[in-house]
Amino acid sequence: MRVQALIKRIIKQMLRDKRTLALLFFAPLIVLTLMYFFFNGNGNEAEIGIADVDKRLVALLEERDIHIEYVEAADSQTVIEAELDGLLTDENGALKLILLNDDPSVARSILVQVNQALLMQNAAVGGDAPTLETDYIYGSGDTEFFDVLSPVLIGFFVFFFVFLISGIGLLKERTSGTLERLMATPIRRWELVAAYLAGFGLFAVIQTVIVVSFSVVVLDVVLVGSIWHVILTNLLLALVALSLGTLLSSFASSEFQMVQFIPIIVIPQIFFAGIFPVEGMAEWLQGIGRIMPIYYAADALKGVMYKGLGLADISRDLLALCIFALVFIVLNVFALKKHRKL
């Protein structure tokens, strides 16, 4: 009953704050779109040569907006002479992809498209997936940076905006004195925390669905696995962000101090999100990564979106996120003891 009244009030306040709503719902879309154009270049106009490849696979590739040129000889020279971006050949069942790689974003796009086409064909035909060997004419296959970027970015933006807005929401309640005033009513501390989770959680759910759908439908980011698993992962991450934001707001005494948490708490998490290879880091640094919620979310998102992993494969990451959320929620209830012992 009291929780309900609180939730109603939080929603009403949010709906009247158009700027914050815009920040929550549109800012991530704008940044994602910018990132998309920044990194994706003209990836969709790739042209590849095909020699002796299964017709069904070729058809799948054509569906994916890849220009197909049938060629006879199959070596690097053909690619350069015919001004192609890549060349796909079948050598006794072993697929080989030669990529020009003069523009890594194009090469990456082709690789992803071919991989997805292969997965789809395999799903239709069954049996063992054919191996795909990749050769680069220029540079090497170190283009993973771009591949993993979009899942990580989606997770990061969900985390960042939910963290900021829920944190500032509870902070406003503190600085305006209304939190103390609430403590002079028979409300229980857990009721307050539950209402904040539910009230802001509602907006976090809407934001997550908007961001994920926009990324997948409009920006056409790589999504091999299920969109539901992407949404689920992001929802859990949003819950972590929500509970962490409200928790940290009890250590801030102004909006500005809340913003000061961004470089301390939020930015470092990007470094452990897998944009930079974690394996290459010092042991102790990797240890720090383990206590960062985004590390787990990014791992799950990359798994689902890029590698096509299922729920069972990411369950450990999801469990980690649940534990984070639970710990932060309990700490929230304790943090309110500052205002009333009971």
Binding site: M1, R9, S176, G177, E180, A184
Partner: peptide
């Protein structure tokens, strides 16, 4: 309890403020 500094929700109307606090009691 009436605090020394007004603890009110500025985005809400006077009625909504009253109704909110009232709904915290049975």
């Amino acid at each position: 309890y009436m605090a020394q500094s007004d603890a009110l929700y500025l985005e809400l109307t006077g009625y909504e403020n009253l109704a909110f606090f009232a709904s915290l009691y049975p």
